[in-house]
């Protein structure tokens, strides 16, 4: 960057008196500056307006639907918005969304932390760098491809695991398998876990990498084993980072649409066993029902979308607040 070429382009303005200095430094006096500031501030304000507009328009259409709804919007196990009278509720969707996300988190968080530790503390440096790079790239694989893989490769391979779970844990009731196609919330949870694994790994890795070298060396000098170093200096330092990484992953799992829609065989009832096909999630329901929805049906779907929006807003906001409390790293590359 050669900035000397700039010199002749802008002769100093003739008489900026001393009192005007402060304002000039903040760049709001010259017309060019004023326009530019207005443009960039305008963009910032536009982002805020956009967020407000998303909430407002969704709420507006949702209120139309909910006022027509003859059943309780939160507790009804049915989705029949174009019926007479229209009856629909989000109980099944809320259940399915929460259950599949919990399964995804239970699987993905420990594994992601393990991989992040593997990359930063166990693998040889070259290998660690390579794995980190590959996992970065995997974060970019679109959800539709995960969906295709899930539906055509993962589902046929789930039979063995289902049978095994049924053999040994069937007595619990929640892991009982009746031989149906393994297109259940459990499979969805596994697929979601795979999809959020890269993002949780990436953020955790960044945090683990920033553990002060001195902490680790101090622990090593005291004769700690590698595991003790991790337990005493790395994990405590990285805890809040891992929590916020998990919540970012949770946000993605909650809003995942196409992969769920392609793998799940949806229905509007809740079954006790996780291995039974059926159930649904907010996003999946919107994608599957949108095609044949009437005007009323679309508003009802928007109402369920509003609930999803609020939930993800809360989860992401909480994650960001945890990150913001510690300024040492940023989630920018997440």
């Amino acid at each position: 960057m050669d900035i000397t070429t700039q010199k002749p382009a802008a002769p100093p303005t003739p008489g900026p008196a001393a009192p005007a200095d402060k304002r000039a430094a903040r760049g709001a006096t010259r017309p060019g500056d004023r326009i530019f500031l207005a443009l960039s501030r305008g963009s910032g304000i536009f982002v805020l307006v956009l967020m407000a507009a998303i909430a407002a328009f969704l709420a507006y259409r949702a209120s139309i639907a909910i006022s027509e709804d003859e059943a309780n919007f939160f507790t009804t196990f049915e989705w029949n918005p174009s019926g007479i009278p229209p009856e629909f509720g989000i109980a099944v969707l809320a259940f399915g969304t929460v259950v599949s996300s919990i399964i995804a988190m239970v699987i993905a968080v420990p594994i992601s932390v393990g991989i992040a530790l593997f990359i930063t503390h166990y693998a040889p440096r070259r290998l660690g760098g390579l794995i980190a790079y590959v996992i970065d790239l995997l974060a970019a694989v679109p959800s539709i491809v995960y969906g295709l893989w899930g539906a055509l490769v993962l589902v046929p391979h789930m039979d063995g695991l289902y049978g095994w779970l049924d053999d040994y844990f069937g007595w619990t009731g929640i892991l009982e398998w009746n031989g149906g196609a393994p297109r259940s919330l459990f499979t969805v949870g596994i697929l979601l876990a795979l999809m959020i694994l890269p993002i949780i790994t990436n953020v955790s890795r960044e945090v683990f990498r920033q553990v002060p070298r001195m902490h680790e060396e101090a622990a090593l000098a005291l004769g700690a084993t590698r595991w003790e170093v991790i337990r005493m200096s790395v994990l405590p330092f990285g805890r809040s980072g891992v929590i916020s990484a998990s919540m970012l992953g949770l946000g993605r799992a909650l809003g995942e649409t196409m992969a769920v829609a392609m793998v799940l065989s949806p229905s509007f009832d809740i079954s006790a066993s996780l291995l039974d096909p059926g159930g649904g999630t907010f996003a999946q329901n919107i994608a599957s029902k949108f095609n044949e929805a009437t005007e009323m049906g679309r508003d009802a779907l928007i109402a369920s979308g509003l609930v999803l929006f609020v939930i993800t807003l809360l989860v992401n906001g909480a994650a960001r607040l945890i990150i913001a409390r510690r300024k040492e790293y940023s989630g920018a590359n997440a």
Binding site: V47, L50, M51, I54, L58, L248, G251, R252, L254, G255, E256, T257, A283, I286, A287, G305, L308, F309, T312, L313, V315, N316, G317, A319, R320, I323, G331, A334
Partner: peptide
């Protein structure tokens, strides 16, 4: 930051 997490369907 929060906008980063908006689900695409929303």
């Amino acid at each position: 930051d929060v906008m980063t997490g908006i689900p695409s369907i929303v």
